[in-house]
């Protein structure tokens, strides 16, 4: 069964009174340092704080090396901060959890499993497959993968693989879905297609979404809030509310204006220097 709320889809999600909803992910004064080959410390994240409320769509945007992926990995529990704290549902994050799904840049489907087995993986791993067996077909259909159940990942297109990876995470009904440039490796048509799919799934599940991207259009098109980050040391320089109702029109005046505002802040944030480190 999918938690499908009829009333939700008709409402412009961005116009929700976000303040009233509980905080799902809270990042408090987090610092994360890495060492390069020569042993020099690189501050990937410097005293970063961020709160994400339930059902919100937040994009982290910034040039390579600004620590946006590092932040996402910390929220996922794949990595630990040197100082500061990350709370998920008010509890400190100590490791990964199926409550916080993660979609990688490369779809990362298990190549030795069929599309269907990949989508069913979370259910089987958590031992709930017997009760929820019928969900697999439902989620595959949502991802537009009907007829490809028996295909192996290398036999399907990149866009299909990412859609499969999306529902593979969503079938666990996570509270938050962390998306690490899931559309970065796709061509622009497939990317737009996947953006629509992502919006559709977000609005039907109400899952909190945190998206890492370097595409300003994508961030403005999808998000309630856009978080602009700057590199060395990785910091949040600005958070912009995108108070425009869904569905958004990419060529509307308001969209173009919002986009330009983000772009302007982006440049003001000094996102110019050449990339030396990619984290």
């Amino acid at each position: 069964m999918i938690d499908y709320d009829e009333t939700k889809t008709d409402l412009p999600v961005g116009a929700f009174p976000a303040v009233a909803l509980p905080v799902v992910v809270e990042v408090k004064n987090v610092t994360r340092e890495f060492r390069d080959d020569r042993g020099n410390g690189i501050v990937a994240l410097d005293n970063v704080s961020l709160s994400v409320r339930q059902g919100e769509f937040v994009s982290l945007i910034g040039p390579s090396g600004c620590g946006k992926t590092s932040l996402l990995r910390l929220i996922a529990g794949l990595d630990e901060p040197q100082s500061g704290e990350i709370l998920a549902d008010g509890e400190p994050v100590t490791g990964t959890s199926h409550e916080r799904g993660y979609v990688f840049q490369q779809a990362n489907l298990f190549p030795w499993k069929t599309v269907e087995e990949n989508v069913a993986f979370g259910l089987k791993a958590r031992g709930v497959y017997a009760q929820r067996r019928s969900d697999v077909a439902e989620y595959l259909e949502m991802a537009g993968l009907k007829g490809f159940e028996r295909a192996y990942p290398h036999q399907i297109s990149g866009g299909m693989a990412q859609r499969a990876a999306l529902v593979r995470s969503l079938i666990n009904r996570p509270k938050a879905l962390l998306l690490d440039e899931p559309m970065g490796a796709l061509d622009s048509f497939t990317r737009m297609d996947l953006q629509e799919k992502l919006l559709e799934l977000w609005q039907s599940f109400g899952t909190t979404m945190i998206l890492v991207t370097h595409d300003i259009d994508e961030a403005v098109y999808l998000s309630d809030r856009v978080v602009i980050m700057t590199p060395r040391p990785g910091r949040i320089s600005e958070i912009i509310d995108i108070a425009s109702p869904f569905p958004r029109n990419r060529s509307s005046a308001i969209f173009v204006e919002l986009r330009n505002r983000v772009l302007e802040k982006f440049h003001l944030a000094g996102a110019e220097p050449p990339v030396e480190y990619i984290i």
Binding site: H98, F110, R126
Partner: peptide
Amino acid sequence: DRTYFEAARILGA
């Protein structure tokens, strides 16, 4: 690939 293990762990394995 390390990320296969990361993906599996996050999915609850």
